[in-house]
């Protein structure tokens, strides 16, 4: 009798243990999964990163905001806006790859080194290249997506053409036609008609980028970065990808026009000078979209 009770109770204990184990696997990785995923690698240039080697670095510099589980729920997270990235989702804003795909290792590497303007994420330039690549592998180990999917194919970015008045004007036409102003506003001041209703994927209010106020974009400051931002879209935010409907030459035109909207930028002297020469006025959203820009011959200056 006693033995029977003991058997039953040990069986119950076993069942409870099993339940506990499966409960663990819902919420977080099991020890086994963790050890498997710690084999994650990252490759950037000549460097190979190993998740295992980044445990110390992550615990020292990242865990406070991004959390032990990489879910963006670190101790400091409650005080932050924007919130730290939740790595378990495998979803990233700054990518060279199409919307809905994983970024390249180099995209994550660049994000760590660049930091995120208008957030508390600083540029981690104090870390060595090897430490950063190891961290990329560690960031990847938090999401099972990296074990089932490959990074997306990066879309090509053709060489940047010379800025001309013509291209800036054509860019302005695109700014109206693509309705960038609906969120970013006619002067790029983040005050378009849809700007105050925007939410991110967690249903938290989010502001469009303010070209007039912001000196830098979150995903980089160069012309190529701007090109990449609107072509890839910023996954997890209201900013969609335009790559299906914007040709490469149009994308450069739009980049040049967006530069004219930036008031606090050091990279746009040329674009602003041309805009000034042209006497470029903000678009009128109520006017029909112009079919074509002014003829190049009629454009004052700008052409070299």
């Amino acid at each position: 009798m006693e033995t029977k009770i003991m058997k039953t109770s040990s069986l119950l204990l076993g069942a409870a243990g099993l339940l506990l184990m499966s409960a663990v696997s819902w919420g977080q990785m099991t020890a086994y999964q963790e050890s498997q995923r710690l084999n994650m690698e990252a490759h950037v240039g000549k460097y190979t990163g190993h998740a295992k080697d980044a445990e110390g670095t992550y615990r020292r510099y990242c865990v406070g905001c991004h959390g032990v589980e990489g879910d963006g729920q670190g101790e400091n997270a409650q005080w932050l806006d924007p919130m730290p990235r939740n790595f378990t989702l495998g979803q990233f804003k700054c990518r060279s790859t199409p919307s809905g795909t994983l970024p390249l290792d180099s995209d994550l590497y660049d994000s760590i080194g660049r930091g995120f303007d208008r957030s508390v994420m600083p540029p981690w330039n104090t870390l060595t290249n090897q430490e950063k690549v190891d961290l990329v592998a560690y960031v990847k180990h938090f999401s099972s997506k990296w074990t089932t999917e490959k990074a997306g194919d990066p879309f090509p970015i053709p060489p940047e053409p010379e800025v001309t008045a013509d291209k800036i004007q054509q860019g302005q036409v695109l700014f109206q036609k693509l309705e960038c102003w609906k969120c970013h506003g006619v002067e790029g001041r983040a005050n378009g008609p849809s700007s105050d209703t925007l939410t991110d994927d967690q249903n938290r209010p989010i502001k469009p980028y303010n070209f007039a106020e912001g000196a830098r974009q979150k995903c980089g400051s160069t012309d190529r970065d701007i090109y990449r931002i609107f072509m890839s879209g910023l996954d997890g935010t209201p900013m969609p990808s335009y790559i299906d409907n914007v040709k490469p030459e149009e994308a450069w035109e739009l980049v040049f026009y967006l530069r004219t909207l930036q008031q606090k930028n050091a990279y746009n002297a040329k674009e602003k000078a041309i805009a000034k020469q042209l006497g470029l006025k903000p678009i009128d959203p109520n006017a029909p979209v112009p079919a074509a820009p002014a003829a190049p011959a009629a454009a004052p200056g700008g052409q070299q």
């Binding site: 919307s99 809905g100 309705e179 609906k182 879209g233 209201p238 900013m239 969609p240 299906d244």
Partner: peptide
Amino acid sequence: QTSHNIHPQPTKNNEWNKSQPPGSPPF
């Protein structure tokens, strides 16, 4: 005659977000 962005928010499929200006071909 206006731009839309199509933003599905799945949990078991990949999320994406694409712009579709007026007159552009179907996705």
